[in-house]
Computed example of a mutant assay.
Amino acid sequence: MDVSVIGITAEAVEVYRYFLRNRGEGVGSVRQALGLDPDSIEAAVESLDRLSLLDLTDRHKVVATEPSIGIERLIERRLNELNTEIRRVLSARDAIATLVEDQKHGEAVTSVLDIERVEGLDRVRQRLDDLGFFSYKETLCLHPGGPLSRGAIETALPLDTRSLRRGLAVKAVYHPKALDDPLMAAYLRDVVGLGGQIHITEDPMDRMVIFDRSVAVVPIHPKESARGALLVREPGLVSQLVTYFDGVWADATDFRDYTEPSDDKPHLSDLERKVLAVMATADKDEIAARELDVSVRTYRRYVADLMSRLGAVNRFQAALRAKEENWI
């Protein structure tokens, strides 16, 4: 028999049954008859009184309510409570329409490109610091133009150190003009010494920083980086910027090779070496450019530069001299 669903405890049931069997007995007789401690008896008696199952007008002559009346009343009250709860639960369906509208609003917002505009150099630096702190894989950077300011270097070195010590890959490409400043050159040597990867290129490039290949930061205005930056999280755009970075990186020269060139080999980028390798074998510029995955115009520009540096009058002669000089 389980009547706990209508609020009657096991001890209260025993006390109630006692008074049903022993009409007119007092509260004091329960302890001796049931072997319960006084506190449990008192709690059970008070509970039965609240449930209207006992009449305690005279505690020395307790009257138990007839079960068909008392228990039925409690069942009816509990059913009313359950019906009220069911109606409350069903009323939650009314929230569906409102929540659907919120969903539609969210879909409309996310349909806009995920690009955040951050204005002011200080705010940009703070956001870069935050993005670098929460990155877990790598940081990719392109730095066109000259050296960083002393303040920028003092800010950047601790951030790079922290990232490298956390196991992140730091890859950055700089223009040779950056090396004109001894402080900047020392900074780059420190980064390389800590495990960072630095490349140098004379080719034009756009300023950007990419975190974990998922967030790209580019200037609002390409020639006025102090105005602010755009934080791009749109996957399609970030993917294109990563591809652009990878291309610039592949064509650039390692920092050590650029600053400490060997005696037997010239300063050549990876792409220049590939151009030399196909110059003597490709019948047409279009075929060579396609093989190198560059435009015909770019290929011809590299060929002309290499022929000039080798002092060759044609491409075949340039390829031969490159082998003789141990360029390839």
Rank of each mutant, 00 (worst) to 15 (best):
D254R: 03
D181Q: 02
G145M: 05
A288F: 00
E11K: 09
D2Q: 11
T155Y: 15
L82G: 03
H221M: 11
L34E: 02
D180A: 10
Q197S: 04
V30I: 12
D180H: 12
P222C: 09
T9H: 05
D212L: 06
Y136D: 10
Y16F: 10
D263G: 04
A10T: 13
L113D: 08
D2K: 06
Y18G: 01
P261C: 02
L82Y: 09
Q317W: 00
A33T: 11
A156S: 14
R309A: 06
R165F: 07
D39A: 15
Y302P: 00
M279I: 01
G35E: 10
L90K: 10
D283K: 15
V238Y: 11
R77W: 08
G228R: 06
K284E: 15
Q240S: 10
D293E: 15
E325L: 14
A95P: 01
F133S: 09
A97V: 05
R127M: 14
A304Y: 11
L237Q: 12
M208L: 13
R207K: 11
P204Y: 11
N326L: 12
L51P: 02
P176F: 02
R50I: 04
E202D: 09
E14R: 15
L99C: 07
V30W: 04
V89E: 03
S163Q: 15
V89P: 02
G70L: 02
H143A: 03
R150Y: 13
F133R: 15
D206L: 14
G145F: 04
A12R: 05
